[in-house]
Amino acid sequence: MPNSTYELFESVSIYLGLGGLFILMGLAVHDVLKKNDVPLVGKLVVYGVLGAGALGFLAKGLIEMFWISTGV
C-alpha cells in the first residue's frame, strides 16, 4: 500500500479515537454529576468546559483541512 493510504488511515483513526474519548469523558462526567447531586450552575460550568475542549478539537481539524487544501 502507498504511504498516502497509511497516512489517511492514521488521520481518520486518531480523529475517531479522540472523538470517542470526548464522548466517554462526557458520559463519565454526566455520571459523576448525577450521582453527586450537583447544582445546575455547576453542571453548566463543567459541560461548558468539556464543550469548549471539544470545539477546540473540532476547530483544529477544520483549520488543518483548510491549510492542507490551500497548500500551506
Rank of each mutant, 00 (worst) to 15 (best):
M1N: 01
M1D: 01
M1H: 01
M1A: 06
N3T: 07
S4F: 03
T5A: 11
E7A: 14
E7K: 12
E7N: 10
L8K: 00
L8C: 06
F9P: 04
F9E: 10
F9H: 01
F9V: 14
S11C: 12
S11P: 07
S13C: 10
I14C: 02
I14L: 01
I14F: 08
Y15D: 10
Y15M: 08
L16I: 02
L16M: 04
L16H: 01
L16P: 01
L18D: 12
L18A: 03
L18F: 09
G19I: 11
G20V: 00
L21E: 03
F22I: 05
F22G: 11
L24N: 12
L24S: 06
L24C: 04
L24W: 10
L24M: 14
M25D: 09
M25V: 13
G26P: 10
L27Q: 08
L27N: 03
A28I: 13
V29F: 05
V29Q: 07
V29C: 15
D31W: 07
V32Q: 06
V32E: 03
L33M: 15
L33R: 08
L33W: 02
K34V: 09
K35C: 09
N36D: 12
D37L: 06
V38W: 01
V38E: 11
V38Q: 04
P39G: 04
L40T: 05
V41A: 15
G42K: 00
G42T: 05
L44G: 02
V45G: 05
V46E: 01
V46P: 08
Y47L: 06
Y47P: 09
G48H: 14
V49R: 03
L50E: 08
G51H: 08
G51K: 11
G51V: 15
A54P: 03
A54Y: 04
L55M: 09
L55F: 13
G56L: 14
F57Y: 15
F57V: 10
L58Q: 05
L58N: 02
A59F: 02
K60A: 09
G61F: 04
L62C: 01
L62E: 02
L62V: 13
I63Y: 03
I63K: 07
E64P: 06
M65G: 07
F66K: 10
W67T: 10
W67S: 09
W67D: 04
W67A: 11
I68Q: 03
G71I: 05
G71E: 00
